[in-house]
Design a protein around this nucleic acid. Structure first.
Lengths: 213, 213, 213, 213
DNA sequence: AATGAATGAGCGTTCATTCAT
DNA sequence: AATGAATGAACGCTCATTCAT
């Protein structure tokens, strides 16, 4: 099956191919160790095209972050669409989240694990995208808990929901690495296990209960 | 060979100063963006000394990882020493962990967040050091749960304990970032909250219980 | 072949537009720092058109030099046409020269101040165009002095006239910069002043007189 | 006679060698067309040394301008030292100026003929150095004329002296090119001729006299 | 024990130029 | 007549590393 590589492609298509390659390379090497040469080669084009379309290495990285943040947002939205009660939305959303993180390792690594020092504007933009993702997880957490807690549930404070969201995202991030060394695990099983682990506790946090040390 | 007359600092001292500087710079810039120049300058010596003592940039990074992993291990040991019942050891250990992670940001970032591509041998060594840290958390988890579950507790499987340890470490990592933007939070409060969140669930995971989706 | 239906501009017009743009950009940036991209954009067309019409960056530069040398020549000719005695021709010519240099800064800068290394053939052509301008100034000088010196004037040697022409052109070039920081000066005033300064001396040079050091 | 090229040289020496090379290359190619590679090669060292000592291409250019401006200033000072009456200082100064311009073609071209667009800070610094040179010529002009005009001489206005200085510098610049194609000319002869040409006129300018057109 | 001097190799970026339509 | 797509080659700059003292 010969794959005739098209030589001339319209800008929009090439752009996506470049971003595809960039996400892979940024994820694998990290922002600084990634070389535009390698990205261009992986995208099957020459370096000047990268600069023509994406302006700079930073612009390229930004494009990656934006696109992948958008995709994750979309994954959330799709999951929510299928779950018509607020309660199901939490599980569906979290499940979608885990699925995304484990299915799109590269996207997630670019979105969440690139810590290297970059120009201030880029750092700001990236932080914004990351906060937007975190806010969506937080929304899921708050909605899910609120419903599951029933009518008389106390309001879940901003800080509490934020805390839970960060804990979940951090756990999910590390667990995705863990999955790689446990090939029999699936995103679903990991989701289930993590839910088992935190579900009751999330409500405890909500209820203000605390265990004695 | 008597070590007299030396006004220039003895090797061991210099070495530690270099590693001090390196941990700061690696943490701030990331492995690749860090420059040996900056490290040498921060250490107050000339570059060839760095190479004389630590061989290469990778050797320098390895030394950082080893030393900081050792320090974290020591923090665990100290915490355990104060808590003479296995049950208290879990909380004390986790608390020590959080304290370490938030007190020694640079150390932790070097230990856990540097993903960049390095030579295979180095990557292997670093992974080993990281796994050793993870193993200690896992030990705490297993011991703590075992005791809290009482006499007839089922054996906690390796995979389960490993899972919980990874979730905790990941959550702790992200929560440390979160703490930075919530200045009123302390490591103790965060520890407490995380314990509230996962304590019950950890036992659920142990008991093999699972919530219906 | 009737030239109907063509909405796209005919070749000659486009060519002039391109050269217009090129003169501006070459003057502003210098030959090497000028980019064909910028020229094409300023001309309102795409880059391949530039190459279709002018062959190369050097060709483009050559075209600029030729056209602007021609314009300066024409300015001389027009000035001469109005001054029907050879004596007036010198002043009118010099005045036209200053007017041109100050009115068409870009043209002059391209004609006289671009020193950058180019291919030998091009350098030769450019030198030729520049020498042609210099020759015209020299002609003015020789004619003007000859007349002013009256019937029995000694022949002004080639070298002497050449010397005076170079001195005048160099002075004029630098004085044009000077004019920019003295907004109340006009080409006419500068011409007058320069004439005052060199008029007597030119005749001295002619007469072979020399001041004692 | 074998020339043993010293490999290791102290910074100060190497720095001067690099600037030597840079002046040549900047003069020959122009700022933009000059490549740091070529400069390094001509200086007999590797590129990083250039950056270690001179920071950047712009820094290198600045260093050239400063050093050569200083040398020209020194040439003026030396000439003035030999001429103990103000009147002789003009001729001696101008002669030194012409000698410098023709002996150090590269220095002068760097000092006066680089027009290309550079960063604002550099442009500012370069302009400053150039103005300082021009001011020295202006000083010579004013002093010389004042003395030659005798006791009752009218004050020479700033603008007039400035004008004359610019005209002289511009003429000298172009005449230096002219000398290259007239190998029998010497700086002394050219100086003499230019003095003949402008000496009387300079006083006319001073006296406010003007020739009728 | 300690350092100033030096470099090979690579990276981000740009540019003149061409191809296919 | 006109252009969007594409690139080889070069340039400014930096960095990990070593040599000579």
């Amino acid at each position: 099956m010969t794959e005739t590589r098209k030589r001339r492609l319209p800008r929009k298509v090439r752009e996506q191919q470049i971003i595809d390659a960039a996400v892979q390379v940024f994820s694998k090497r990290g922002y600084h160790a990634a070389s535009v040469d390698e990205i261009a080669e992986l995208a099957g084009i020459s370096k000047p095209m990268v600069y023509l379309y994406l302006d700079s290495k930073e612009g390229l990285f930004l494009a990656c972050v934006h696109r992948e943040a958008g995709r994750l947002t979309e994954a959330f939205r799709d999951a929510a669409r299928g779950a018509h009660s607020p309660g199901l939305r939490l599980r569906a959303g979290l499940s979608a989240f885990f699925a995304f993180v484990s299915d799109h390792r590269d996207s997630w690594v670019v979105l969440h694990r690139q810590t290297s020092a970059m120009s201030e504007t880029v750092t700001a933009e990236v932080s914004k995208a990351r906060r937007s993702v975190m806010a969506q997880v937080e929304g899921l957490v708050r909605a899910g808990i609120a419903e599951s807690a029933g009518a008389g549930a106390p309001e879940l404070g901003d800080e509490e929901a934020d805390f839970v969201a960060h804990a979940l995202v951090g756990a999910a991030d590390t667990l995705t690495d863990w999955m790689e060394s446990h090939p029999r695990e699936t995103p679903e099983r990991v989701t289930q296990r993590l839910m088992n682990m935190v579900w009751v506790g999330m409500r405890n946090v909500l209820a203000g209960e605390s265990l004695e040390p």
